[in-house]
Design a protein around this nucleic acid. Structure first.
Lengths: 333, 333
DNA sequence: TTGAAAGCGCTAACAC
DNA sequence: GTGTTAGCGCTTTCAA
């Protein structure tokens, strides 16, 4: 053991411990074919014995690519992204790619936008899972895909999303199918909510029903849902059903219903959107629309890989079909 | 503009565009003092014009440190970590450090443990915000701190946590103070839950009250809380209050109460733990214990910085005092 | 199938 | 206050 104490082993240490050259070690690390089993075993044994971990910094620098995909997230509090990340990871991990998450609220002050941090990491692609800003996409110069429907288009970026308008229609038609006629909608800010509201509106109009839409002060939080639902219930006492733009707002709406003495589903049917962990909670057992975010994530990964192979690919939009998930927060009138 | 198209600008490009040497650029990047205002402005202008983003890979490799702190997270679904990250970030960002998150469920298959990935990133320190495993801390060779109380101790790592036992006592004493005598506790797996249960037990014993503890099949999820609370309510119909080991389990308990026809707080008082976003939802308005996770995060950051300055520092445990947050899920008997 | 050697873009120590 | 230079630990030709 000639290795100094305290120094981290590097590829040379492994190579000499295994009695091979460092290129050979590099090949083994990347699982390249055509390395003799004996040498491969020797290298693996040396890696294990020295507790060697390759430096990603060196690999990124030398290879001029990080094998990392960056994801720009909105807010950890809204759980819709969990399946998105899982879907991304499932596609990407087998190819040796990693996922790095950037939250706009963190690492601020170090970078002007979360994208800056990812560019400094030399990510090979970016998934924008938030409402994009001009500043943000000005900084991007790798393949990018926008996950989810947004108000603003990012030039040159593919879009992979669930079909929010169809989802809004599905939700509304479910309520209509249960016999409801006075159906309110609780909406918020952002492209997805806008489309869900359009779907709601289309379904109502198609049946000649009058739409009732309300929104809170902010975006799509629980308290926005609460506020908006109160407004709806107070202005339209005959309402028998509410469609909330997402599960978090539906939680708020459930609070409003409770505060107005309306039982769910006996007095008021409630449907959400996202099929987040919240929806399956026993207190809510919320009927909701599943945007199939894992498939959105997988689609985003594929779009990124396609585009990095051929940057000139036509920009496209991929829409995943949402599904109705029936629980017990909705009932026949 | 002699720069090739397509190539990313590097520090040389900036230097020559600004008419200075590359060390000067490096100094400006790190905000070093003692650079003349004129040259600093020239460098900043060049950075802006070329849209230059320094390569973190190169900086890490050359500087032999990444200025990044790694955080190992449990599960995105449980929101207790949100404030922890904020606290970490607030301490670290002014010093130019970044935070990288590793989720055990992601990036699996690439690494044996999430720690491997962070070591490959050459993080300067690690915050373990999950139940540690032997495999995990065998791989760590940078300063480490465990955030939160855990079953297993990590040798050489500081611990920063809220005082879960005191919190358990606080919660229980709040209920006792409201006149409750038949108080049940819903618990789960992990070190924090164990200590919270001890606090509950101590408070009950101190008043000569008989403890009733139940747990679900799994760890500390909503459905575990639901199951355990059902058990509690069915076996002890005289129960007038429940203390749940965290807010997520409290949500489950609220579902169980509803299913057994118990109104909160009229028929049953309910208290949670964590003061997560869930607790402030209007449907719950949950009285809870605030573990002050932002301060835990800040403490973890300080512990890491202290230890990297002097690795021989005595290992210590820092306990943050939890606080009772009263909402309307608890009421006098 | 394996080895040698040239960088990748930066930091830090030192010289001026 | 500013410039020069030697690596950091890898990947990637290219040759053997």
């Amino acid at each position: 053991m000639t290795q100094e104490i305290g120094r981290r082993p590097n590829i040379y240490d492994v190579a000499s411990a295994a009695g091979v050259s460092k290129s050979l070690v590099s090949l083994v690390l990347r699982g390249a074919p055509g390395v003799s089993p004996a040498r491969r075993a020797a290298v693996e044994e040396a890696i294990e014995r020295l507790n060697y971990r390759p430096s990603r910094a060196a690999a990124t620098l030398a290879g001029n690519r990080s094998r990392t995909i960056g994801v720009v997230l909105d807010d950890y509090r809204n759980l819709w992204f969990v399946d998105l990340l899982a879907g991304l990871h499932n596609q990407l991990a087998p190819l040796g790619y990693r996922v790095a998450v950037a939250d706009p609220s963190f690492n601020a002050r170090l970078d002007r936008t979360p994208v800056d941090g990812l560019m400094s990491l030399r990510v090979d692609g970016i998934v924008i899972a938030t409402e994009p800003t001009e500043e943000m996409f000005a900084a991007v110069d790798v393949p990018a895909v926008v996950a989810g429907n947004r108000d603003m288009a990012v030039p040159g970026a593919d879009v992979v999303a669930n079909d929010d308008m169809m989802g809004g229609r599905l939700a509304t038609e479910h309520l209509i199918g249960l016999g409801h006629r006075d159906i309110g909608h609780v909406t918020g800010g952002g492209g997805a909510a806008r489309l869900r509201a359009l779907g709601y509106d289309a379904a109502m109009q198609a049946r000649g029903l009058r739409p009732h839409i309300a929104r809170g002060q902010g975006l799509t939080t629980e308290s926005d849902g609460y506020e908006a639902a109160l407004k709806l219930l107070d202005e339209n006492p005959s309402l028998t059903a509410i469609f909330a733009a997402n599960d978090t707002m539906a939680l708020g709406a459930a609070g409003a219903a409770r505060d107005r003495g309306r039982r769910i589903p006996e007095d008021l049917s409630l449907i959400g959107y996202d099929n987040s962990p919240l929806a399956s909670a026993n207190l809510l057992r919320l009927t909701t629309i599943d945007g199939r975010n894992a498939e959105v994530g997988a689609g985003a990964a594929r779009a990124l890989l396609d585009r990095s192979q051929d940057p000139a690919t036509q920009v496209r939009t991929v829409l995943v079909e949402p599904e109705l998930v029936i629980r017990t927060s909705t009932a026949a009138r």
